[in-house]
């Protein structure tokens, strides 16, 4: 009984407390860089697409809203198309977590309402930005041991020059 009255009193006292609601459109709250908003595809430090079309984001997506098709040029994989259906996206960030190349990143932008659902289907042109996003230095192909234009076999990080298979010397 006393507890109920105390509750009533304490609640009543909240009349004098400051309101925690942020009046959003007039006052934009500062969002942390790791906020999970609109998804983008970034580029590596050399300005090339980071996405290698490995499909891991697509398979990690719990609502299956990412679809892409792999294409290949000179050993570099890239997505032929890359589609995110944002009308399904739940901004869970699993895709970013799954991405082995830091290509797919969630940004602090969440203002993406549309009157028509088809406008929420983003293609690669809508997703690809020209910068590196949150990870300025990482380049997948500098680490991976595949040959691409400008990086021969044995020129990746921690790689020895290719073996001469015609010698039996140790």
């Amino acid at each position: 009984m006393f507890g109920i009255l105390r509750t009533l009193w304490l609640t009543f006292l909240h009349m004098g407390h400051r309101r925690v609601t942020v009046g959003y459109p007039e006052h934009k709250p500062p969002l942390p860089p790791r906020y999970r908003g609109r998804i983008i595809l970034s580029r590596d430090p050399d300005g090339m697409e980071r996405c290698v079309a490995c499909n891991l984001c697509a398979v990690a997506c719990p609502v299956d809203c990412i679809s892409l098709q792999k294409a290949e040029q000179d050993g570099r994989w890239y997505p032929d198309y890359f589609r995110i259906n944002f009308s399904r996206c739940i901004f869970c960030g699993m895709c970013e977590e799954a991405c082995p190349t830091y290509a797919i990143q969630l940004t602090p932008d969440f203002e993406m309402s549309e009157y028509l659902r088809p406008n929420l289907v983003y293609e690669k042109e809508d997703l690809l930005i020209s910068g590196t996003g949150k990870y300025p230095d990482y380049s997948f192909f500098r680490v991976a041991g595949v040959k691409i234009p400008g990086k021969d076999k044995g020129e990746a990080e921690r790689e020895a020059p290719p073996v001469d298979i015609h010698t039996l010397l140790p």
């Binding site: 009349m15 407390h17 400051r18 309101r19 925690v20 609601t21």
Partner: peptide, 8 residues
């Protein structure tokens, strides 16, 4: 309610 619950 908003007043007592620190909202608008």
């Amino acid at each position: 309610l908003g007043l007592w619950q620190d909202r608008y």
